[in-house]
Design a protein around this nucleic acid. Structure first.
Lengths: 342, 342
DNA sequence: TTGAAAGCGCTAACAG
DNA sequence: CTGTTAGCGCTTTCAA
């Protein structure tokens, strides 16, 4: 910058005023000369210095639990879209099977002076991260469920989500429904399981009798969980899976046992990932508004950064998408593309 | 930091030496006192100042074309894993249908003084970004194909990839093979198409006669492309799809036309996304080493940052995974989970 | 409308 | 082993 100033025969102050383009009055002639010099010398302002001075980096951090679950890239996209639209950059970190990294991530981000933080996927309800977030004074929004509810969060109503799936199956006449839930300690599946049990009880079924197996968020786990459920003497006639990816595994398990979906076994998933509509049978699922969750979380964070009041919780709507894995005939030839989306 | 120094009755220099923990000799007693004060006051060092001084941020940027394609989250994970292992953070940006954002992303990243850049997915072979990268003096590695080959890159041999798929189908006796390629201007599908045509020619088939349709990287496009191919009078007996996600759409199209896979139609995809193994029929595919591509690209970038010599191109291996969409019987009950991975 | 100078938080000589 | 000091690149009073 000094060089530019010298070359343009002005002071660094003037260069600064021209480059940062902040309504400060600069003679048109001077401005042009500076701009020209800047271009000629290939000068790129150093945001570090500016950030140091202003104590603001216009960068937010995001921590994602796991990119393999297609829900999270969706959240990430939502966050990023709103962030760029508001002149923010995104510092990215993923846990992905290394929970021990979390502490370090938070430290690094604090050290890099991010203006705010979004934790995607929630579930970090253990106290350590929360305490650390507090200690580091990080302005944080959870894009997902959190048990304690200490931080502002954007999420769906997981109990309602659980109810939605269970009601659909009960209405179809199912009386024996197995559940493949997520790994222990994940808040979303826990809420959904609770919702489903409410519905079972209301329908006069014994929630305690409904078999539940755990699975990681991967098709392998869905396959194993499906087998576990379907090998039982009192094989259920329907399965609720904690995610579409898990549901795909469960469908494969049913297929390999010679069971027809949906006639012998109905399956419901969660997320409505893009391929679900194109499976055969196509997959009935509860759509999560992934992009929306991310975008809204970023909007809440922006308010927080501006010092405005923000709601403790923002709850986003859900939609049951009924397809061929619960209702026969949904995949009639010529019918499939009707569903129209994008 | 000044406050900490004062409270611990030492100079800022000493605090710096303790906090940055760089083998500089400090009396054990003093060190402990400083550390204690740091903790008590909740002090977090400001990396901006350090970066400003050292002219290095220990942050690298990554630009991803599109998170909806599961290949890219895989690359991102690979980059991040190697980055954190080496003390780097990742500044993330995604194009996702906004090609106009690229220029701005590059400027912002230069302004934030990233140490290096990784462009995932390649295909940005248009001159403008390359010129800009040069003008901004960004040390860059391409994690994917690039037409010009001006920057160090890590990629697979797309021609070989195309050959692999075509050879598999030709060996199975297919003589009429349709191709659903990616959107125009994407380098990877172009190379693969060329490879497939080589094989057709070698097998005495007329490459010009093999029908080719374009599709975006989404199942919708695969469905439409599949329909376009299968509605022809000379319906092909096999289809090569540019990605697994596209292939899923094509499989649905075949199903809806009453065609059996693989008996009436064989299908090969690319990527080996996690669900492919659990489709029924399971999907034959060419596995892309996504994580590996990202991890290797980051390793090349690290070398670049250290000033070491780096190879112009690093070519990673490929693997054809034969499954039920090309060979009947691959999904025999009890057989599926054998394949073992992870 | 422009310039001079102080200072954001930190590190690296250089002295002591 | 510890302290003093200059300066990284920028913005922002304050004066001119």
């Amino acid at each position: 910058m000094k060089d530019v100033a010298q070359a343009a025969k002005v002071s660094t102050a003037t260069v600064s005023r021209v480059v940062s383009d902040n309504g400060y009055p600069v003679a048109e002639e001077t401005r042009l000369r500076v701009l020209e010099t800047v271009r000629r010398m290939g000068y790129t302002p150093n945001d570090l210095a500016r950030s140091l001075l202003k104590d603001a980096t216009r960068t937010i951090g995001i921590i994602v639990p796991d990119l393999a679950n297609p829900h999270h890239p969706g959240v990430l996209r939502g966050v990023e879209d709103v962030a760029v639209a508001n002149g923010y950059s995104v510092l990215f970190s993923s846990i992905d099977g290394h929970p021990d990294r979390l502490e370090n991530y938070l430290n690094v981000m604090a050290t890099k002076r991010i203006d705010g933080l979004i934790m995607a996927g929630g579930g970090y309800d253990s106290t350590p991260p929360l305490e650390q977030i507090r200690a580091l004074r990080l302005k944080t929004v959870m894009a997902g469920p959190q048990a304690g509810g200490q931080l502002p969060g954007v999420e769906i109503d997981n109990v309602a989500a659980g109810r939605l799936a269970a009601e659909h199956l009960v209405q179809l006449g199912h009386r024996s429904i197995g559940v493949i839930t997520g790994p222990q300690g994940t808040a979303a599946p826990a809420g959904r399981l609770a919702g489903a049990r409410q519905v079972f009880a209301e329908a006069g079924l014994n929630p305690g009798e409904m078999p539940v197996v755990e699975s990681p968020f991967a098709s392998e786990g869905g396959y194993a969980g499906g087998r576990a459920l379907l090998d039982r003497d009192d094989r259920p006639t329907a399965i609720i899976a904690a995610s579409d990816v898990i549901a795909v595994g469960a469908m494969a398990a049913a297929h390999d046992l010679g069971l027809r979906v949906p006639q012998d076994l109905a399956i419901v998933g969660y997320d409505d990932i893009p391929v679900s509509r194109f499976l055969r049978p196509s997959l009935t699922t509860i759509g999560l508004p992934s992009w929306q969750i991310g975008a809204t979380a970023m909007e809440v964070l922006l308010k927080l950064l501006r010092g405005e009041e923000v709601p403790d919780h923002t709850v986003l709507g859900l939609e049951l998408v009924v397809r061929g894995s619960t209702v026969a005939g949904a995949d009639e030839p010529e019918a499939a593309p009707q569903e129209s989306q994008e």
